[in-house]
Each structure stands twice: as structure tokens, then as C-alpha cells.
């Protein structure tokens, strides 16, 4: 066998291996999705979406769970969005490259990798105990905000970095201050990218159960929360609760709830992809 033949075979072999690797992930996901859909789709109806939880599987609904999830989503966004963007803008546009800013940067990157249950413990100590909030929506949203803050900061910085230096120069040369340049040029030009990052971070937060369980969110909440000071549950906790029950009917409920949770996640990711696409079309440097 000649050398070039050998190389071609290696090439071919890797291609096949690569396809195999790519498909493992997809196949597993597909099997999971199909399994869940077969199990749960029949259970989803208007009553399921609008009923309160119940001890009897057939009467139990997810109204409080998805309402709680939406509450958490909106509150976390309201808290983490301005904080994350402000921190990202500061680090990228204002902070001098000192040892301190280096230290901050490394630690923010590290924070993005901290397991979510640790954030739960932090939230428990800080918001539930020290601030004495108890296991309410606000405490949950604050905890999840901490969780997604590093992700938002990092994506904000990336989006801001993508705005060319020449745009800032152009703005400065016309007499604009740093703040005016950030406000009128950098943020509008990077907003799509920032929003994409925020939404992806939120879609991560939507799936979290552990940190919320730690701060004391309940599995059984017999009312829809009407303010940030109310007790709450969220879809992942409801799912976790149902899957730990012995009755098969509750497993069906869990599958149905998983479908709803996945729909919310896919919807968020879809919006993110759409925004990124639109941004890329609108601005070509």
C-alpha cells in the first residue's frame, strides 16, 4: 500500500468516526425526546396546564409550576440583565488592565463553572437567612441571577469586543465622551449579541431545580404566586417531585411537564438564534 493510499484511508476512517460521534449525541437526544413524547403527549390538555397540583395524578396540573417558572424567568432577567451588562461594559471599556482587573476576569470565568447547587447554598445563606427573605420567589430569582451573571458578563464582553475599534475612534474623534460612545455606538451595535447571551443564560436558569430546592422552594404550592414575595415552585422541581413517586400515572405527568419545559427552553433558544441571525444580517463591518 502506498503512502497516499494510507493517508486516504485514514481520512476516510476519520470521517466515518466523526459522523459516528456526531450522531451519538443526536441519537441519544432523539431517543429521549421520542420516549418522553410518547409517554407524555397524551396527558397534555388544557386542564393539565390550568390545574393546581393534586395528590391524585389524574387531577394534578402544572399551573403553579409554569407560572412559577415564568415569574422566576422574568425576575432573574430584570435583576441579572442590567447588572451583567454594566459589569461587562465596565470590564471591557473602562477597566484599566491592572492586576486587579485580571484577577476579576479570571474569577468571573471561574464562577461560570461553579456547580449550581453551590449557588443554591450561597442563596440560602445570603438571601434566605441573612436577608431573611425565606423561600420566596425573590430569593429564588436572586439566587439564579447570581448563577447566570457570569455567563451574561462573559457574553456581553464578547459582543462588545466584536464592535470594531474604528467605530469607537470615529465617535471619540467627533468629541463624544466614553459614556456617549458606549451608549450611542457600542451598545446598539452589540445589543443583539448581548441579548442572545442573556436569553441563553435564562434558558439555563429555567432548567435549574437544585439551587431552588436548596433555598427552600416547595414542590407543593396550592396557589399561583401573585408577587415576588410569594412562595413558589417551578417546573423542574415539579418534575423532580413527580418522578420520585411510585405511581406510574405520576411518571406520565412528569413526561408531560418535561415536554412543556422543553418547549419553553426551545422557544428561548429559538429567539436567541433568530436575534443573532438578524443582527448578523443588519450589521456587516
Amino acid at each position: 500500500m502506498t503512502n497516499s493510499e494510507k493517508n486516504r484511508r485514514k481520512d476516510k476512517a476519520f470521517q466515518v468516526f466523526g459522523i459516528f460521534c456526531t450522531f451519538i449525541g443526536l441519537v441519544v437526544l432523539a431517543i429521549f425526546l421520542i420516549d418522553i413524547v410518547i409517554e407524555g403527549i397524551g396527558r397534555i390538555d388544557w386542564d393539565f396546564l390550568t390545574s393546581l397540583p393534586s395528590r391524585r395524578a389524574a387531577r394534578a396540573g402544572i399551573l403553579t409550576a409554569w407560572a412559577g417558572t415564568i415569574w422566576i424567568l422574568v425576575l432573574s432577567a430584570l435583576i441579572a440583565f442590567p447588572l451583567g451588562i454594566a459589569a461587562g461594559v465596565y470590564l471591557e471599556e473602562y477597566a484599566k488592565k491592572t492586576k486587579l482587573s485580571n484577577f476579576l476576569e479570571i474569577n468571573i470565568a471561574n464562577l461560570a463553572g461553579v456547580p449550581s447547587i453551590i449557588y443554591g447554598l450561597l442563596g440560602l445563606e445570603l438571601f434566605v437567612r441573612i436577608m431573611n427573605l425565606g423561600g420566596i420567589l425573590l430569593a429564588g430569582a436572586l439566587t439564579l441571577s447570581l448563577l447566570i451573571l457570569p455567563i451574561i458578563i462573559v457574553t456581553t464582553r464578547e459582543a462588545i469586543k466584536a464592535v470594531p475599534r474604528t467605530i469607537r475612534d470615529g465617535s471619540f474623534a467627533l468629541g463624544a465622551s466614553k459614556w456617549q460612545t458606549v451608549w450611542y455606538q457600542v451598545l446598539p451595535a452589540s445589543f443583539g449579541g448581548i441579548l442572545t447571551g442573556v436569553i441563553l443564560a435564562l434558558s439555563r436558569a429555567v432548567g435549574e431545580a437544585a439551587p431552588l430546592i436548596v433555598i427552600g422552594a416547595l414542590a407543593y404550592v396550592p396557589f399561583v404566586p401573585s408577587s415576588p414575595m410569594d412562595e413558589f415552585t417551578v417546573l423542574p422541581i415539579q418534575i423532580f417531585n413527580w418522578t420520585s413517586r411510585p405511581q406510574a400515572a405520576f411518571l406520565t405527568n412528569a413526561a408531560a411537564a418535561i415536554i412543556i419545559l422543553l418547549l419553553i427552553t426551545f422557544l428561548l433558544n429559538g429567539i436567541a438564534v433568530y436575534l443573532r441571525h438578524r443582527q448578523q444580517k443588519k450589521i456587516k463591518w
Binding site: P164, T166, I167, D169, G170, S171, A173, L174, Q185, P188, A189, K282, I283
Partner: peptide, 11 residues
């Protein structure tokens, strides 16, 4: 005022 090497209109 200043004009740069590469045209840099704002988006």
C-alpha cells in the same frame, strides 16, 4: 476633526 484610513461610518 479627523478622518480615518478605513471609512468608518456608524451602523
Amino acid at each position: 476633526g479627523m478622518v480615518f484610513q478605513k471609512p468608518n461610518p456608524f451602523p
